[in-house]
Simulated assay, not measured.
Amino acid sequence: MDGTPERQRLLGLVVDLILRDGVIDLSLSAIARAIGSNNRMLLYYFGSKQELIGEAALVAFDRFPRLRDMFDRLRDAGDLEERLIAAWDDLADPESRPYVRLFFQRFGIAMRDPDEWGDFIERVGREWVEEVDAVLRAEGFDGGDARAAATQIIALFRGLQFLLLSGVPADQLRDAYRLGIRPVLERAPGFSRR
Protein backbone atom coordinates (compact mmCIF):
# COMPACT_ATOMS: atom_id res chain seq x y z
CA MET A 1 0.00 0.00 0.00
CA ASP A 2 2.87 2.43 0.77
CA GLY A 3 4.06 2.72 -2.82
CA THR A 4 0.74 2.89 -4.64
CA PRO A 5 0.48 5.66 -7.22
CA GLU A 6 -2.61 7.12 -5.55
CA ARG A 7 -0.92 7.26 -2.14
CA GLN A 8 2.12 8.96 -3.67
CA ARG A 9 -0.09 11.41 -5.55
CA LEU A 10 -1.97 12.34 -2.37
CA LEU A 11 1.28 12.66 -0.44
CA GLY A 12 2.72 14.99 -3.07
CA LEU A 13 -0.38 17.17 -2.90
CA VAL A 14 -0.14 17.34 0.89
CA VAL A 15 3.53 18.31 0.66
CA ASP A 16 2.64 21.12 -1.73
CA LEU A 17 -0.14 22.23 0.62
CA ILE A 18 1.89 22.32 3.84
CA LEU A 19 4.82 24.10 2.20
CA ARG A 20 2.47 26.71 0.76
CA ASP A 21 -0.01 27.15 3.64
CA GLY A 22 1.68 25.63 6.68
CA VAL A 23 0.12 23.28 9.20
CA ILE A 24 -1.24 25.58 11.89
CA ASP A 25 -4.92 24.75 12.52
CA LEU A 26 -4.96 22.41 9.53
CA SER A 27 -7.48 19.64 10.23
CA LEU A 28 -7.64 16.36 8.38
CA SER A 29 -10.86 17.54 6.76
CA ALA A 30 -9.22 20.77 5.61
CA ILE A 31 -6.32 18.81 4.13
CA ALA A 32 -8.72 16.46 2.34
CA ARG A 33 -10.75 19.35 0.91
CA ALA A 34 -7.65 21.26 -0.20
CA ILE A 35 -6.28 18.29 -2.15
CA GLY A 36 -9.59 17.04 -3.54
CA SER A 37 -9.83 13.91 -1.39
CA ASN A 38 -11.70 12.86 1.73
CA ASN A 39 -10.90 11.89 5.32
CA ARG A 40 -11.54 8.22 4.71
CA MET A 41 -8.96 7.98 1.92
CA LEU A 42 -6.33 9.88 3.89
CA LEU A 43 -6.86 7.67 6.93
CA TYR A 44 -6.73 4.56 4.75
CA TYR A 45 -3.39 5.52 3.24
CA PHE A 46 -1.74 7.29 6.19
CA GLY A 47 -3.43 6.11 9.40
CA SER A 48 -3.75 9.49 11.13
CA LYS A 49 -3.27 13.19 10.60
CA GLN A 50 -0.01 13.06 12.59
CA GLU A 51 1.38 10.27 10.40
CA LEU A 52 0.31 12.12 7.24
CA ILE A 53 1.91 15.40 8.34
CA GLY A 54 5.04 13.59 9.55
CA GLU A 55 5.53 11.74 6.29
CA ALA A 56 4.73 14.82 4.22
CA ALA A 57 7.32 16.81 6.20
CA LEU A 58 9.96 14.15 5.46
CA VAL A 59 9.15 14.28 1.77
CA ALA A 60 9.17 18.08 1.92
CA PHE A 61 12.65 18.00 3.48
CA ASP A 62 13.93 16.13 0.42
CA ARG A 63 12.79 19.03 -1.77
CA PHE A 64 15.44 21.22 -0.13
CA PRO A 65 18.79 19.78 -1.20
CA ARG A 66 20.86 22.26 0.80
CA LEU A 67 19.13 21.11 3.97
CA ARG A 68 18.96 17.45 2.99
CA ASP A 69 22.71 17.27 2.28
CA MET A 70 23.86 19.64 5.02
CA PHE A 71 25.21 16.95 7.34
CA ASP A 72 26.96 15.12 4.50
CA ARG A 73 28.88 18.31 3.78
CA LEU A 74 29.55 18.84 7.48
CA ARG A 75 31.14 15.38 7.62
CA ASP A 76 33.46 16.17 4.69
CA ALA A 77 37.13 16.87 5.27
CA GLY A 78 38.36 20.41 5.70
CA ASP A 79 38.40 23.22 8.18
CA LEU A 80 35.80 22.64 10.94
CA GLU A 81 34.92 26.31 11.26
CA GLU A 82 34.31 26.64 7.52
CA ARG A 83 32.11 23.53 7.52
CA LEU A 84 30.09 24.78 10.49
CA ILE A 85 29.61 28.19 8.86
CA ALA A 86 28.55 26.47 5.62
CA ALA A 87 25.96 24.46 7.60
CA TRP A 88 24.48 27.70 8.95
CA ASP A 89 24.47 29.14 5.43
CA ASP A 90 22.48 26.09 4.29
CA LEU A 91 19.91 26.65 7.04
CA ALA A 92 19.68 30.39 6.43
CA ASP A 93 19.46 30.20 2.64
CA PRO A 94 16.26 31.93 1.43
CA GLU A 95 15.37 28.82 -0.57
CA SER A 96 15.31 26.82 2.70
CA ARG A 97 12.88 29.21 4.38
CA PRO A 98 9.63 27.34 3.54
CA TYR A 99 10.92 24.21 5.23
CA VAL A 100 12.30 26.09 8.23
CA ARG A 101 8.91 27.77 8.66
CA LEU A 102 7.18 24.36 8.42
CA PHE A 103 9.54 22.90 11.03
CA PHE A 104 8.72 25.59 13.58
CA GLN A 105 5.00 25.28 12.90
CA ARG A 106 5.17 21.53 13.52
CA PHE A 107 7.17 22.13 16.68
CA GLY A 108 4.55 24.59 17.96
CA ILE A 109 1.78 22.08 17.33
CA ALA A 110 3.81 19.37 19.06
CA MET A 111 4.26 21.54 22.14
CA ARG A 112 0.51 22.06 22.28
CA ASP A 113 -0.11 18.29 22.23
CA PRO A 114 3.10 16.55 23.37
CA ASP A 115 1.41 13.20 24.01
CA GLU A 116 0.28 12.98 20.39
CA TRP A 117 3.56 14.26 18.91
CA GLY A 118 6.01 12.65 21.36
CA ASP A 119 8.04 10.85 18.69
CA PHE A 120 8.57 14.08 16.76
CA ILE A 121 9.61 15.96 19.92
CA GLU A 122 12.07 13.23 20.84
CA ARG A 123 13.64 13.23 17.36
CA VAL A 124 13.96 17.04 17.37
CA GLY A 125 15.91 16.86 20.60
CA ARG A 126 18.15 14.01 19.47
CA GLU A 127 18.80 13.63 15.74
CA TRP A 128 20.71 16.80 14.85
CA VAL A 129 22.67 16.71 18.10
CA GLU A 130 23.77 13.17 17.23
CA GLU A 131 24.82 14.27 13.74
CA VAL A 132 26.99 17.13 15.02
CA ASP A 133 28.29 14.99 17.90
CA ALA A 134 29.61 12.45 15.39
CA VAL A 135 31.34 15.20 13.41
CA LEU A 136 32.98 16.60 16.53
CA ARG A 137 34.14 13.15 17.69
CA ALA A 138 35.71 12.64 14.26
CA GLU A 139 37.53 15.94 14.88
CA GLY A 140 38.98 14.54 18.12
CA PHE A 141 36.56 15.82 20.76
CA ASP A 142 36.04 13.40 23.63
CA GLY A 143 32.55 11.95 24.14
CA GLY A 144 31.12 14.23 26.82
CA ASP A 145 32.62 17.39 25.39
CA ALA A 146 31.45 16.44 21.86
CA ARG A 147 27.87 15.98 23.09
CA ALA A 148 27.85 19.27 25.00
CA ALA A 149 29.38 21.17 22.07
CA ALA A 150 26.94 19.57 19.60
CA THR A 151 24.03 20.57 21.83
CA GLN A 152 25.36 24.14 21.92
CA ILE A 153 25.64 24.27 18.13
CA ILE A 154 22.12 22.95 17.59
CA ALA A 155 20.78 25.43 20.16
CA LEU A 156 22.44 28.19 18.14
CA PHE A 157 20.92 26.83 14.94
CA ARG A 158 17.42 26.75 16.39
CA GLY A 159 17.57 30.13 18.09
CA LEU A 160 19.04 31.85 15.06
CA GLN A 161 16.53 30.19 12.74
CA PHE A 162 13.78 31.60 14.92
CA LEU A 163 15.30 35.08 14.60
CA LEU A 164 15.70 34.58 10.86
CA LEU A 165 11.98 33.87 10.54
CA SER A 166 11.36 36.95 12.68
CA GLY A 167 13.04 39.14 10.09
CA VAL A 168 16.51 39.66 11.57
CA PRO A 169 18.96 40.17 8.68
CA ALA A 170 20.81 37.02 7.62
CA ASP A 171 24.26 38.67 7.69
CA GLN A 172 23.71 39.78 11.30
CA LEU A 173 22.75 36.22 12.24
CA ARG A 174 25.76 34.77 10.41
CA ASP A 175 28.04 37.04 12.45
CA ALA A 176 26.27 35.99 15.66
CA TYR A 177 26.64 32.33 14.70
CA ARG A 178 30.35 32.75 14.00
CA LEU A 179 30.81 34.29 17.47
CA GLY A 180 28.61 31.61 19.03
CA ILE A 181 30.63 28.70 17.67
CA ARG A 182 33.98 30.27 18.63
CA PRO A 183 33.96 28.73 22.16
CA VAL A 184 33.26 25.32 20.61
CA LEU A 185 36.13 25.70 18.16
CA GLU A 186 38.48 26.79 20.94
CA ARG A 187 37.85 23.45 22.66
CA ALA A 188 38.76 21.53 19.51
CA PRO A 189 41.91 19.42 19.82
CA GLY A 190 44.76 21.18 18.03
CA PHE A 191 42.86 24.48 17.72
CA SER A 192 45.02 27.47 16.98
CA ARG A 193 43.83 31.08 16.96
CA ARG A 194 43.85 32.69 13.53
Rank of each mutant, 00 (worst) to 15 (best):
A34V: 00
G36N: 05
G36K: 12
G36L: 03
R40Q: 13
M41V: 10
L43E: 09
L43M: 12
L43D: 01
Y44V: 05
Y44I: 07
F46G: 14
G47T: 00
G47F: 05
S48E: 10
S48T: 14
K49C: 10
Q50T: 15
E51V: 14
L52I: 03
I53C: 11
G54E: 13
E55I: 05
E55F: 04
E55R: 09
A56F: 02
A57C: 03
A57P: 05
L58Q: 10
L58T: 09
A60V: 05
A60C: 04
A60I: 04
D62A: 12
F64V: 05
F64Q: 00
R66W: 08
L67K: 05
L67I: 13
L67Y: 01
R68W: 07
R68P: 02
R68D: 04
R68Y: 01
D69V: 06
M70S: 15
F71G: 07
D72E: 13
R75M: 10
R75E: 15
D76I: 01
D76V: 04
G78S: 10
L80Q: 07
E81T: 07
E81R: 15
R83H: 06
L84Q: 15
D90T: 09
L91A: 08
L91P: 14
A92T: 09
P94C: 03
P94S: 11
E95Y: 13
S96M: 05
S96H: 06
R97E: 15
R97V: 09
R97I: 00
L102R: 08
L102N: 01
F103S: 08
F103T: 14
F103R: 11
F104P: 04
R106C: 09
R106Y: 01
R106I: 06
F107P: 08
F107I: 10
G108Q: 15
I109P: 00
A110M: 07
A110C: 06
D113I: 02
P114N: 09
D115C: 02
E116A: 12
E116F: 07
G118H: 14
D119E: 09
D119Q: 10
F120L: 15
F120D: 12
I121W: 03
I121S: 09
E122V: 03
E122D: 14
R123I: 08
V124L: 06
V124D: 02
V124H: 00
G125V: 07
G125H: 01
R126Y: 02
V129T: 11
E131I: 03
E131S: 12
E131D: 11
V132S: 00
